[in-house]
């Protein structure tokens, strides 16, 4: 289990992370989500003990991280890189040994993972000869070859083709199911939506939304209504308690105020326009992200 409590990090005048807290437990996939430059990488580096937070703390199973804990963690950094002049196998063994694994045990796992990612033929080739996608997969294997209890994948899907991307997704879900603590960071909401059980959304170093994905969606999303119709679109513009968040001549997406039920909207438009489709939706994480980050941006501008 990883507990992050109010971590904060500044570089000179710049506040990279203002305050972020969350708890990631074994058995699911935890998503650290935010736009580029939100402070994700700095937060991850603090969790990985590469940076020390100015204040706040990161706890692994209830205690501050020790050097020994580093061996229990697997890390796929966003900035990928491997030594170019060594072979795939040599690199993987080296990194596993730096995590405290014995060469023999690591070799067995490396063989299995290379097989699974269809890289066995490349095992004794130099890293230099790999394509970008292949070296991406090798790096992923490097992060798990020592069989860590806690794994952190920073933007795990970037640079992968759809087939590899699916393989990666299945592997990450499997790691979660086998009772490991799995954290991923991403700015692509579709990925987070597909695999995360819990999320924290951060922007400008601050936590904006957090919790189980299901409840986040319920909290921020049960008042979204999609209407497809024939008729005069302007009736939505004058309707009390209703805001058009996406409008086209025959399609609108509506956000309803607190207390206004979708039923009353349906009642008031019935008969005035010809309704083809009326749907109460949970908004996508993408929508929540855009809205929340946008709102933050506005309040940030005002302050």
């Amino acid at each position: 289990m990883v507990e992050v409590r109010n971590i904060r990090k500044t570089f000179g005048e710049t506040v990279a992370v203002e305050s972020v807290s969350f708890t990631a437990s074994p058995g699911g996939v935890f998503g650290l989500i935010g736009p580029n430059g939100a402070g994700k990488s700095t937060a991850i580096r603090m969790i990985m003990n590469i940076f020390r937070p100015d204040s706040g703390e990161v706890l692994f199973d209830g205690h501050p991280i020790t050097e020994h804990d580093k061996n229990r963690i697997g890390y796929l950094p966003e900035e990928r890189g491997l030594y170019k002049t060594v072979t795939v196998n040599e690199m993987l063994i080296y990194l596993a040994r730096l995590k405290g694994a014995s060469a023999a045990v690591a070799q067995k796992r490396i063989d299995e993972w290379l097989e699974r990612f269809k890289l066995t033929a490349w095992q004794h080739k130099k890293i230099d000869e790999l394509s970008k996608g292949m070296s991406q997969k090798v790096q992923f294997i490097a992060s798990i070859a020592h069989d860590p209890e806690i794994v952190f994948f920073d933007e795990p899907f970037s640079g992968l083709d759809p087939v590899s991307s699916d393989l990666m997704r299945d592997t990450i879900l499997e790691l979660g199911r086998t009772n490991r603590t799995v954290l991923i960071s991403t700015h692509i909401m579709e990925h987070a939506e597909k695999i995360c059980s819990d999320i924290v959304l951060i922007d400008r170093g601050r936590e904006i939304v957090s919790g189980p994905l299901k409840s986040v969606k319920e909290e921020y999303g049960h008042r979204s209504v999609i209407v497809e119709f024939d008729g005069d679109r302007s009736i939505f513009d004058t309707m009390a308690g209703v805001r058009v968040i996406a409008g086209y001549p025959r399609y609108v997406e509506l956000r309803l105020d607190e207390g206004l039920s979708p039923d009353s909207v349906f009642t008031s438009i019935a008969g005035r326009i010809s309704v083809q489709r009326f749907e109460v939706t949970t908004p996508t994480l993408h929508r929540i992200f855009v809205e929340q980050v946008g709102r933050e941006a506005v309040s940030h501008e005002l302050s």
Partner: peptide, 17 residues
């Protein structure tokens, strides 16, 4: 310098001091 250029620094520093 290579650790920086080829970006192995983070994976290294997540394992060792």
């Amino acid at each position: 310098l290579t650790e920086k250029i080829v970006n192995t620094k983070e994976i290294m520093l997540s394992s060792v001091r």
